[in-house]
Amino acid sequence: MKEATPNTDRFRVFILALTLLNTIFAALLSGLQVDANIRSDQANRDSQYYALLAADEVIRFGHQTAYDLELVTTTVKEAQQALVLQLTALELEDAGEKESAAALAGQSEVAQARADQGFSLSRLYSDPRYAPEEPGGLPNQQAYLEDMGKAANEFVAKQNAASDAYHKWDTKADSYIAVLSILAIAFFLLGLAQSAARLRLFFGASALVVMLLAAAWTGFILIS
């Protein structure tokens, strides 16, 4: 009979130690859960912010390309018109219709003046990155469009990364809640172990198994 008392006391200390361990584990886990939740909120916010920035950039890019390409179209049209008028004037001159030829040559000069002004204003003709490599050639519209879309694409890439981070942290936060629920079960078992002397070891061992399961799951969440 005398040997039973120390055993009971030893288990009581064991249960108290387990409860203290579970307490620390729960506190740490709740910290991890809140941290995951906050990170998921921040990633969600960043994802929305980058989506806005990408949308704004697409609008800016739209205005700019509409202006630049409209100017190129008008300018090329004027240049081609000047060329056609000049060719027609030469044909008329060959046919002996000098008066009509002179009138068309004058109109050609006017169209060419418009075109020259357009070329000097156009980014696609004045910027060396896009300007035609030979006289009469067309600007490098592919390079221009790629450069114009670069900023928007970068925002979209950041938005996608933030969105992925949001899903990752949101899943972790949910999983931590599940582990905290399991720890609540461990607390319940440890409470029973403290008050039920006969089944103290059984409840204590059950709580330990539950705590080990929770620890394993937490480890898995942390590395995932």
Binding site: A102, V110, R114, G118, L121
Partner: peptide, 16 residues
């Protein structure tokens, strides 16, 4: 405006 102004300059310089 700039293109039309250049055109007018050319028109004024025309022989026609």
């Amino acid at each position: 405006f700039a293109m039309e102004r250049a055109a007018v300059d050319a028109m004024e310089a025309s022989k026609d």
